[in-house]
């Protein structure tokens, strides 16, 4: 299998996407309000991290 050519930005964005997705899927199952707040905080933090990634190393979305 040919390895995909991922830049560091892609790797970070993929990881952040999985963190956000995991927290969202957990939110579908968790009913405890404190746990839900923690999960929402994780999503917010991951989105903040994504903004930092974009600001530090802006990359054109045109290359995938």
């Amino acid at each position: 299998m040919t390895p995909a050519r991922q830049s560091p930005n892609h790797e970070l964005n993929n990881l952040l996407c999985k963190i956000i997705g995991s927290a969202e899927l957990a939110l579908l199952r968790v009913t405890d309000s404190e746990a839900r707040m923690e999960l929402e905080a994780i999503i917010d933090l991951a989105e903040t991290a994504a903004s930092v990634v974009a600001r530090r190393a802006p990359l054109s979305p045109w290359n995938g």
């Binding site: 991922q6 830049s7 930005n9 892609h10 964005n13 993929n14 952040l16 996407c17 963190i19 956000i20 997705g21 969202e24 899927l25 999503i43 991951a46 989105e47 994504a50 903004s51 990634v53 974009a54 802006p58 990359l59 054109s60 979305p61 045109w62 290359n63 995938g64």
Partner: peptide, 30 residues
């Protein structure tokens, strides 16, 4: 797209260039 957040106005242009109907930039919310 894993290339990062895209300015709102660029979505149509990018989707059209890719031949897709829409584009969503990672990281996104499910």
């Amino acid at each position: 797209s894993g290339g990062g957040r895209i300015a709102a106005g660029d979505f149509l242009k990018l989707a059209s260039a890719l031949g897709a109907d829409a584009v969503i930039a990672k990281p996104f919310r499910l």
